[in-house]
Simulated scan of single mutants.
Amino acid sequence: MTEDTKIKAECLDCKRQTNHQVIATKLHAPFSPHEYHDGKEYSIIQCLGCDQFSFLKTYHDYEARYAIDWEQDEFDHVRIYTNFYPDASEVLNKYRISLPENLYTIYEETKVAFTQNLDIFTAIGIRSIIEGICKDKKVTGRDLEKKISNLKNLGDISKRDVDLLHSLRFLGNDAVHALIKPERNDIIVAFNIIEHLIQAIYLMPKELKRTNFKIHLDEYSKFEEFIMEMIRNHISFDFSYNYSIKKLISPRGKIPYDKFGEFEQKLNSRIKSGELDWIEITQNENQSDSIQNNNETFYKINKVP
């Protein structure tokens, strides 16, 4: 390959095969009449999608030739590409800041094993990631099988995701106990599944907080936690103001119409029982509210929960 050549290669950041540009390359192909004619080429390449740099090794098997055009007598030889990343931590930064430290360490080492085609270690690492998630989220169970089944109680993943995780558990068990090397395609699919799980539980909720998307509050626990988070995050929150529920969750929260009365009743009940000491029921005395709904309940915040 020459500089400025464009090739297809795996990108660790894009997590798929993308177009890359060759920045620099060096061919090492010692050859004598008595040796097999092959060689290794080392290249610095840059992804044309995300601009990430990586190091590529290309194995040239000059004796494994195949025809490109029989009529024109054009032939080419077999090439095997292997991506190497001297410092994978740079492109894993978003995982580092989102995952618990121990879980990130497992993920990082598993990712490196995956990119280096160390499929047995990758399978073992995937199993360890699942165990790490269960431990971090305090998912209980007598064994990993039961813990995976209980992951659905987190509310972040579907039953289909749970079924897929059981398949990954089998893959990991075969690698750990029988040292069975999985098929490469199986490992690729397995790693995509585990990254989907990590994104659903850890990355996407944090990214969602940086948007202006409205939050769908369809469970009371989510509704109450959302109010507390709004109070904690709003430095200029007015403790002298009387808030309706709509004002408490405005502008980002949205309660389904058929859940509104249920949530209000449960909130009032928890306040009256003394379970919530940071909020109280009050009358609307806001002078700026020219129109009042007599059926609407108002609340005053006593302190940051």
Rank of each mutant, 00 (worst) to 15 (best):
I97W: 05
N212E: 12
N173C: 03
E3R: 11
E280R: 14
N192H: 10
Q283H: 10
T58S: 13
F226N: 02
Q21H: 05
S158K: 04
N302R: 13
L154D: 14
K147Q: 14
S43E: 05
D51N: 09
H234R: 10
Y241W: 10
Y243V: 07
L144M: 10
A113L: 04
E90I: 15
L171M: 12
F53I: 13
F75E: 13
E131L: 01
R96V: 05
E229W: 02
A67W: 12
T140K: 14
I198D: 00
Y95R: 00
S288H: 12
F75T: 09
E101D: 10
K214S: 12
S89D: 02
E71N: 13
A190P: 00
V112S: 09
W70R: 11
P251D: 13
T58Q: 11
Q46V: 15
I194M: 08
N295S: 11
A24S: 09
D238A: 03
K159W: 05
Y59K: 09
I45W: 03
E63Y: 00
I194V: 15
F121I: 09
K26Y: 13
I180V: 10
K303T: 00
L171F: 08
I198W: 00
P305D: 15
E109K: 11
A190G: 05
G274M: 08
L267W: 08
L171I: 11
K272G: 03
S250E: 11
Q283W: 06
F263H: 05
V162G: 00
N302K: 15
F31T: 05
Q292H: 05
E219G: 02
K266S: 06
I126V: 14
L208F: 09
K137Y: 04
F55H: 04
L171T: 07
S236R: 14
V22G: 09
I201D: 04
Y81P: 12
N286E: 05
K138I: 02
I201N: 06
E224M: 00
R16V: 08
V139S: 05
Y104L: 04
L276R: 14
D136W: 00
R96F: 09
P251I: 09
P30C: 01
L203A: 07
N293M: 00
Y81T: 12
A67R: 08
Y59P: 01
D38L: 01
K300P: 14
T110V: 03
D186C: 01
I7Q: 04
S43Q: 09
R210N: 15
L165P: 03
E296R: 10
V91T: 14
K222Y: 01
N212I: 07
N294E: 12
Y85R: 05
I124W: 09
F191G: 06
C14N: 02
K259I: 01
K206M: 13
N294C: 07
T110I: 06
R160W: 02
K111P: 02
E131P: 00
L248M: 12
A175C: 08
R169V: 08
F223P: 01
L168V: 11
Y107Q: 02
M230D: 07
L48N: 14
